[in-house]
Amino acid sequence: MENRQSGGASFLGPALFAVVLLGLIGSTVYIFARRIWWFPEPVTALGASIDRQFDYTLIITGIVFVLAQLGLAYTILRYRDRGGRAHYSHGHTGLEVIWIALTAILFVGLGIAAEAAWRDYHSLGPAAEGMPVEIWGKQFKWYFRYPGPDGQFGRTAPELVNDLAGNYMGVDFDDPAAKDDIITATLAVPVNQRVNVTLRTLDVTHSFFVRELRFKQDAVPGLLIRMNFTAEKAGTYEVVCAELCGLGHHQMRADLMVVPPDDFEKWLGEQAAYMAALTGAEPEPESE
């Protein structure tokens, strides 16, 4: 024949390939098993079930990963060209069917197993009592609004937005329900308290992401998105933006403080006092 590829009978190439694949398997298994880079501890019950689902997925895909890469390394090494002809075969229908059934059960089963936590995450059921908070995204800051003692958020209107006066989300302070609204740049919540959040944005799409809560949700212009979480461990956690929102996307962060209920009431009182000073000093919103 015209030419027999020089690499045909060589042992070096297949061996190197097998070594690289073994290195890949080894380093990947080691890094995942040692959890060198990993999520922070979850502070919600839901977070724990999300992590459990991640673990199931990791175990299943991990086994498939190791077997497939090992299988590849083995065939490459074992079946390198050492003369003679290959085994003539067009496949094996039985094996194929077993394989299809196996992967279908495994993957679809995994998908179904994941559903429960997703339903909890979105509380696909009757709405439950909780502390209401609004989360507002705005290039490139997070703002939060508490309804105050009346439990009602006041009306907002985009034309009332006035950053200099601290009215970042355009609250209409003429609305009675708005009088006691509190606007903050830090999100504080009491520990073990269900928080019903409403995600809103003033400009483009943002995404509210707190690693420890295992919580991520886009804030979409024109939509009010209602979610909830219950933080079970006190601490300060970072809120970041996970959806590209412009040139300051990477700087759009805030703090989430999960604090004991007493500390929360104290903090909210301070914020309310600050707010009162601010709105008192503000000129009549509709003077123009």
Binding site: A68, Y79, E96, I100
Partner: peptide, 21 residues
């Protein structure tokens, strides 16, 4: 599932082969 079929069949093709590198 179909993606797994492809992978399975690629390795199946290599099984019993005379691979030229």
């Amino acid at each position: 599932v179909p993606s797994a079929i492809k992978t399975f069949n690629w390795i199946g093709t290599l099984w019993g082969a005379r691979i030229r590198f």
